[in-house]
Design a protein around this nucleic acid. Sequence first.
DNA 1: ACGTATAATGACTGACTAGTCAGTCATTAT
DNA 2: ATAATGACTGACTAGTCAGTCATTATACGT
Lengths: 201, 201
Amino acid sequence: MVIDNMRKKETKTRDKIIKNALKIFARKGYFRTTVDDIAQATGLAKGTVYLYFKDKQDLYVATIDEHFTRALDTLAGINAKSITPREKMQEIAISVINYIRHLKTSYMLFTFENINLKGKTLKNIHSIIEPKIQEMIDLISDIIEDGVANKQFRKVDPRITAFYFLSMIRAIFLSNLYVSEASFQTDTVLKLFFEGLNKRR
Amino acid sequence: MVIDNMRKKETKTRDKIIKNALKIFARKGYFRTTVDDIAQATGLAKGTVYLYFKDKQDLYVATIDEHFTRALDTLAGINAKSITPREKMQEIAISVINYIRHLKTSYMLFTFENINLKGKTLKNIHSIIEPKIQEMIDLISDIIEDGVANKQFRKVDPRITAFYFLSMIRAIFLSNLYVSEASFQTDTVLKLFFEGLNKRR
DNA sequence: ACGTATAATGACTGACTAGTCAGTCATTAT
DNA sequence: ATAATGACTGACTAGTCAGTCATTATACGT
């Protein structure tokens, strides 16, 4: 009982730190974010953060892990629905966009290319992100394969297409920053994705 | 005469610095790159860099400017060719990919979302990148409009599509890092872009 | 060769942040 | 009541790097 309470408190504080770290890293990026920023946002002193995380990069890794775990949960939830593959993909796109908007950041982060960390931590990030991205690609390519099997989609390489789909989601978000007509027009880009640019004959 | 020689030397050294900065910033990113890295790569002392650039961010801005100027020159050159809109777009994709590969970097940089600079310099970057990206989008959307006019492409929002196209190029590059089957298969992704995912009826 | 202007150098300074650790305090056990 | 424990604090240290500037080297004209 007592031990449970202690562990609860530890988990609770750690989770609070991660939750705040996610928001701040998303908004300011790794290098512009200080450990003190995160500590203050959590209502703690900086030294406390080091009770839970070995160092800044360890915190970052934990944050990314959390981020991708959430994303995968969301994707899995959508995939479990009894809807068509196309509808699944549409829901995935919309939910990712909503998640990003919820972070109230001016740009999307947490893809490894944003991060220029030391080689060792880059490998850590890689070792966490890569399986998660593979899992995402696996999940989306399963959906695509279903669509191909039931003749909704044409025959394509499912994994490349899955990756392309994730990039398309990113384009939806970024287009808002550069194309004044965009305005989070998910439908427009989704239509391009599904219909292509070529005129149908 | 003397003044011309001096100016020549100044321009020459400055250009050398920028050239090296481009490679190193591309590989290591802004924060992981030190001014001394760039100085040494150029064969100069660190203090010399400050003869030509006000500060690190000024150097970065100049580097980005150079990068985008080159990119736009390349795009303009391709656009001037007498080939179909689709061929133009294919050449653009291939030449951008080749440029990135030439930088020998493991990821594509120089889009503002990678950079968490101080507000003022972020605005500087923005003020340089934004017109250039708009110019790129303008150029590509002209090509798309041509394709729509001559019935090669279906009717789409040209600017959103142009942006989506640029994102697609990025996806080609990144897919190499996550999808083992990708292997710079530009054709596969270009086909997806032009044909879409939906099965044709 | 000499003088002058300019290019270039690298040791130094100081701002900044990650990480450390002695100390505090609330809670629990005895 | 006292001791032990662990969550937490914040002053401090160490390392890093952007930027500075006195000094040196080079280029060029006379």
